[in-house]
Design a protein around this nucleic acid. Structure first.
Lengths: 362, 362
DNA sequence: CATTCCTATGATGGGCCCACGACACCCACG
DNA sequence: CGTGGGTGTCGTGGGCCCATCATAGGAATG
């Protein structure tokens, strides 16, 4: 008792510690800890009493102390590869936002919180936060951050299969090749003779796999590749590239755009050149945005299902953190979804009033 | 020495502690701490030596221990008000994504990281993470989370001026009333006779202030209010509400939409009713999205400048955390920006080829 | 006296910081 | 010339932050 009182002397009065609760409840510190954590075997009366006193004092266990003692912080890092100055590309692509949202939700449901930590963060920030594990979006070949984390023995789960020999704990990805091949077949089936590609200049896996798949498809069907690449992080460059693609002498009669804004960019470019969509030009782009349901015409989009990916990634990571031996495979391929709209159909199925934005969720 | 060795006995060999470094460098723990943190007065030789040994052992100070000792975690909460099941509305509105991005960037630059903590998080998650302060986006009148945080003595800075008597440390906001009045004047100046509003049913400050400003403007100029309200978190409801607004017998000849997707929704609805924009219907919506630069026609948007807000909020919060007495005012009003495009001008200034997406940044 | 229950004590986790101690050096005084 | 006090520089010890857990101890009951 007297020990508890004296030891609190130097403390700020704002927050009550476990000692204060113990003193106020007339029990020992252990009893308080056990009572609040549901451990040990205590009479219900004691348990209730302690809880009551703790509530009255507004007691909140110190997260730092608990973390130090238990070695678990309940914190998961969310790392995004970055382009340019800005720490990450949340905005440009609705994908990241959706994925982060689902990941946050899934983490929360299991008692974890997400910490946003761009890969380019100052090192002192990284080392200043106690993480139980990390989600990495689109890790680059030799990402030093990931290596460091793995070396520390922290579980790392990546969105996108790791390039090279990056030793991640698990990964979740789409089958980008299959998705691209599916779209090209879809466009060819709608009558396209020369399909163009709007792609990126960066070296990430998504861009690489998609472009490669396109080139192989061209080779297989005997079409000359028609594509423009631009730095995907620069929205203006996208509009310019779309324009260039349609200005070419070997102008394609169908285009697939790998990035979210490509749809409106291509539509705008088509208008500039007097091309009607879908009559003169078939259009598909990869996007999670619902605006494409209401453009004129509505544009066919490929969804990478970021919600499912975000959820899966977090589940895998928390399984690894907690040592749960779930039956989830550590390498998951999430199927993509092609949302077919007017822009990729030579004969629109119905010319009646288009329904207001369908609930293409989950 | 021997004490250090014995004390390490039970530890996992994976991570080196400060004790290990001290032993390996042949100095005391304090010296290691001082050398690595640039404190105390040590000869450069010692400092270098310690740093070298620490590097060799791959020493990383335990964030948990440091937090416990110093009382600072370097972590800032980012709380978003939520609608429905999903923990927060990152996607629906590019605003949040932009704001979060800027906030992350600003926090990082000052050595802090952001933790995503929706207001509806399980309480145990909240209390399980040591925060130095919190950013709250659009706090509701009597947000229990905010009250709790303030009661704990944590600084809280809100995006959006706090409703009621919420005792936040500081806040940053736009002048929503002025923005709405500006838009209405802009539309009236372009020839609008009856201006409609697409608004939300939720009780947040933004919706409330904007709607009120609209009603007052109507009263002032003697126009009957023409508006439709819908639950802003439901994208389908937005399309329906846009349709309803244009189907009314007292159909407006200009509409301002308070939410991001309203632009495409209204455009689609206008097409359904054969209304030409801007000839038959003037359109403005509040959005951070660049797609409106390339729609047909391009749509005038109001930007709330989320980047500036996100940055300002974080600066204020960190100032409060660190007790810095900066000259920043604790109540900041960030000016909005009206990006005038074709949709709100009766006589388009130029009918030539529209430039590809202007770089409306910062 | 033995067996249940419950509670108290103390060690532990790892880094930070206050208050000193050791040591070198210089000057002055005896 | 020797020694004590003054002044500095470096470096060390131990306590502290706070909750958790293992183990030992005590009270009550059969």
């Amino acid at each position: 008792m007297s020990r508890a009182e004296t030891s609190r002397r130097g403390s700020r009065p704002g927050r009550a510690g476990i000692r204060d609760v113990a003193a106020a409840a007339g029990v020992s510190i252990t009893t308080v800890s056990d009572a609040l954590n549901g451990k040990g075997r205590l009479p219900d009366a004691t348990r209730r009493h302690v809880r009551e006193v703790a509530d009255r004092l507004g007691y909140r266990p110190s997260a730092a102390a608990r973390t130090l003692r238990t070695g678990k912080s309940g914190l998961i890092g969310l790392t995004v590869t970055t382009y340019g100055d800005e720490p990450f590309t949340f905005t440009e692509f609705a994908y990241f936002a959706e994925m982060a949202r689902a990941a946050t939700s899934a983490a929360l449901a299991r008692g974890y919180a997400l910490v946003i930590l761009p890969a380019t963060s100052r090192h002192d920030v990284w080392s200043n936060v106690a993480l139980d594990g990390t989600v990495v979006i689109d890790p680059s070949d030799q990402d030093p951050v990931v290596s460091e984390l793995v070396r520390q023995g922290l579980p790392v789960v990546s969105d996108g299969r790791p390039a090279g020999s990056l030793p991640v704990t698990a990964w979740v990805d789409n089958d980008h090749e299959a998705a691209v091949l599916g779209i090209l077949d879809h466009l060819a089936g709608a009558g396209a003779r020369r399909i163009g590609l709007l792609t990126g200049t960066s070296t990430d896996t998504y861009t690489h796999l998609s472009t490669t798949a396109y080139l192989r498809w061209c080779e297989r069907v005997g079409q000359d590749p028609v594509y423009e690449a631009y730095p995907a992080h620069d929205p203006c460059a996208g509009a310019v590239a779309a324009d260039r693609l349609l200005a070419r002498p070997d102008r394609p009669d169908a285009v697939y755009g790998l990035f979210d804004p490509n749809g409106t960019d291509l539509l705008a470019a088509a208008r500039r050149y007097g091309l009607r969509v879908p009559d003169d030009l078939l259009l598909v782009c990869c996007s999670e945005s619902t605006v494409y349901a209401n453009t004129e015409p509505p544009i066919t989009t490929l969804s990478l299902k970021p919600r499912r990916i975000g959820t899966a990634v977090v589940q895998l990571l928390i399984d690894a953190i907690e040592g749960v031996d779930s039956d989830r495979p550590v390498e998951q391929v999430i199927p993509t979804e092609l949302i077919v709209r007017t822009s990729s159909q030579r004969r629109p199925p119905r010319t009646t009033v288009s329904p207001p934005r369908s609930p293409e969720g989950a």
